[in-house]
Write a protein that binds this DNA or RNA. Structure first.
Lengths: 229, 229
DNA sequence: GATGATTTGTACGTATGTATA
DNA sequence: ATATACATACGTACAAATCAT
């Protein structure tokens, strides 16, 4: 693995995990020192992250982790709903038997996590659940776009997303509706059920305090930086 | 403007216009000489193009213009249909009066291009028509994804797309259906009419001889390279 | 399969542009 | 407003990996 690739993956992980927050600067020298490399591979990693939308780069002014406006964030959530809905629809049409069994198995495991109230495990399994659905649609490009969008939204999903036990139960029930539709091959219902699920996710997100949202920044103006290319 | 940016834009233009073909290699030294720069900015431009999906980069093996498999190309066309459909739906919901007038004006201009059989002008105006529709949806992220997808498919749309006069007439009629639905605010019909239009575009595309499609490569195997991230 | 030629990956130094005093 | 400090952009040199012979 090349150094640039290593640095890119490390930065991606740190951004997605919340260890580096949107709006914060990415200093080339500092990163180079921190990874024991020269600035060259750091710069190449930053260029790639900028192209992916996770980072915003302005010539001669350095790179910062993308901090979309509330408007853009809303737009992204809305399209996330559409994309996830399409994934569910396609999955209902074309998931193989083995994939259906696998999805049900994960769903069943998640049921016991709900029972035991293990939020961390549920959140982790939830990622797998959705990813399996993307794959089940058998459309590599749709899977790519949806995953990319989920990644770009990841920093803005509050740290402990399934904070309330009630949300955990509700999430599992919503998944249940999606799965039932998929197993029946009802692609219309599958799409709608999934869209309803993601809309709920968005609403829960919006109802939570916003530690990093741009609208929360009271005094200072972190100079809105979009994630577009 | 920085050199890396200049080179990136120049390469993008060459790829989209067909002056550089999918599967062809992008030699760093050659590009550097060609643009009178060093390899450093060339490399940064290539990294960004790779992240955008137009170019595929493999460590220690250089960059080549993305040549998706037929499977991937089909997936991309299918999602292009969905995305364009969503744009039309959103446009029907939220286009301003001025935007509607503007769209109608373009459509009217295109009618005279059909009459005079000016294919080049029609193709050019067609790009504007679709872009206006993306903007009319008032969702910046959807517009971004749709534009990105159109760009990635661009190299695979045959050079003279509106080769037959009949196709020109049909295209304009399909646009007419989309516009009528949008003006009536019928977002369901708008989406369906647009999806039908893009499906037709895809079918016309598939019915044409394939100068660069990977399936056309008879003897040599250009080592399928996906456009994924 | 080993070796040389070629190309990519990385380091470092200098130039240029931006921000602050 | 000018100058100074600082970070980024670029060029050059070398190291490492790939491929052609």
């Amino acid at each position: 693995m090349t150094r640039a690739e290593t640095i890119r993956l490390a930065l991606t992980d740190q951004i997605l995990s919340g260890r580096r927050l949107p709006g914060s600067a990415l200093d080339e020298n500092e990163l180079a020192r921190s990874y024991g490399a020269s600035r060259t591979p750091v710069r190449e990693a930053l260029r790639q992250l900028a192209a992916s939308g996770l980072v915003v780069h302005r010539p001669h002014r350095g790179a910062v982790i993308a901090l979309p406006s509330d408007q853009m964030l809303g737009d992204m959530f809305q399209i996330m709903t559409e994309l996830e809905g399409l994934c569910a629809e396609y999955a209902a049409r074309s998931m193989t038997l083995a994939q259906r069994d696998d999805l049900v198995a994960i769903h069943t495991q998640m049921a016991s996590m709900v029972s035991s109230g293990d939020r961390a495990a549920y959140a982790s399994a939830n990622e797998v659940f959705h990813t399996r659905l993307y794959e089940g649609g058998h459309n590599a490009y749709l899977a790519e776009l949806t995953l990319q969008t989920r990644q770009r939204l990841q920093p803005f999903r509050r740290a402990q997303f399934f904070s309330s036990l009630g949300r955990l139960v509700a999430s599992h029930q919503e998944h249940e509706a999606v799965i039932q539709a998929i197993l029946r091959g009802d692609h219309v219902k599958a799409r709608l059920a999934m869209m309803q699920h993601i809309v709920t996710v968005r609403d829960v997100y919006l109802s939570m305090p916003a530690p990093i949202s741009s609208s929360a920044a009271s005094g200072n103006k972190p100079e809105q930086v979009a994630g577009g290319r």
